[in-house]
Design a binder for these strands. Structure first.
Lengths: 110, 110
DNA sequence: AATCTTTATCGTAATATTGCAATCTGAAAA
DNA sequence: TTTTCAGATTGCAATATTACGATAAAGATT
């Protein structure tokens, strides 16, 4: 074994897991934060910003794109990447929801 | 190779990655959602709620606990687990922050 | 056309994760 | 004390992830 049993969980649970898993690596967190930092989203220099080889960065970008966390357009000789706001909002709503429900319940017994 | 190069990233980036990685599995999302659903946090039946064997569930619980997403107390013969509100709030704040900054910038060019 | 530049892909090695059977641990019940 | 029960730990097999050198692809530059 070793493969995740996704079929036993709900679509929503798998969706959240896919998003959080995609962010579950410091390089990918760093990429998202860099994309947030720069003003323009024409960013042909993500590789230079990270302490990783170009193929590794390319792979991380692909994973973020597959998960829907970033969007990418071919821009001549470079690639224009930027954060997909809607996806971040999904995560924001998810955690806000949990937070709110927990505060209302006050079941903090541990 | 194959090991994540955590030393090249900031503590904050690693911290976020640790939290999101811990949630990056549908079983662990399901555990958190179950802990949220039940009123009491004396929960000796998480294993029955999940389509996984007992050792697997125990391992997932351990990972959630290591990441600080849940807290656990020994309660006689059972274990009392519950969500750590503060950690969820950290995630909430993180994504709210990104969301807000993106909305202000309106750099949605892709 | 030949070259340069940037990003993607392939192949592969090292390491991590997932899942479970078997087993251990420790408190409660008999 | 012995049994029982819930949960943790161990050990292992299957699979996934991470990282990078080599190479390919494709538009830009000369």
């Amino acid at each position: 074994m070793g493969a995740t049993k996704t079929e036993h969980f709900t679509d929503k649970q798998n969706a959240i897991a896919t998003l959080t898993k995609a962010l579950g690596h410091p390089a990918r967190v760093a990429i998202v934060e860099y994309l947030m930092k720069v003003d323009t989203c024409i960013c042909g220099d993500i590789v230079n910003e990270l302490p990783l080889a170009q193929p590794t960065v390319s792979q991380h970008l692909k994973e973020l794109k597959n998960a829907g966390l970033i969007k990418g357009n071919i821009e001549g000789n470079a690639i224009c990447y930027c954060i997909d706001e809607k996806t971040i909002e999904k995560l924001q709503n998810y955690f806000t929801n949990i937070s709110t429900k927990l505060t209302n319940k006050k079941n903090d017994c541990c």
